[in-house]
C-alpha cells in the first residue's frame, strides 16, 4: 500500500498525524505529508485506512493498493 497527501486539499487538521504518526509528518504550518515515499508497511495498513477515514478534507489518497 502506498499513500499520498494532496497539498491542495490539506488544510492542517492533523488528524492523520494524530492517528498514525509513523505514516505522516506535519510541518510548522500544519501541512501533512506522507513519510518517505508513502509506502505503508503491512502492519500499519489499518492505521493508514483509519487516517484516510478521518480526514475532514478528503486529502489522503491511496496511490497503490
Amino acid at each position: 500500500m502506498k499513500i499520498s497527501v494532496d497539498p491542495e486539499k490539506c488544510t492542517g487538521h492533523a488528524r492523520c498525524y494524530g492517528l498514525a504518526p509513523d505514516l505522516f509528518t506535519v510541518d510548522d504550518y500544519g501541512l501533512s505529508s506522507a513519510v518517505g515515499d508513502g509506502s505503508v508497511p503491512p502492519e500499519l495498513e489499518d492505521k493508514a485506512r483509519l487516517a484516510i477515514a478521518n480526514c475532514p478534507e478528503y486529502a489522503i489518497e491511496v496511490v497503490e493498493e
Binding site: T11, H13, G30, L50, A53, N54, P56, E57
Partner: peptide, 23 residues
C-alpha cells in the same frame, strides 16, 4: 468512533489555527 470527519475546527482555509493547542 472509527470514522469521524468532524469539522469542530472548521473546514477549508480557515481551519482553526489553534486546533493543536486546543486538543
Amino acid at each position: 468512533r472509527a470514522q469521524n470527519r468532524h469539522v469542530a475546527f472548521g473546514s477549508g482555509i480557515h481551519r482553526c489555527a489553534g486546533s493543536n493547542l486546543a486538543r
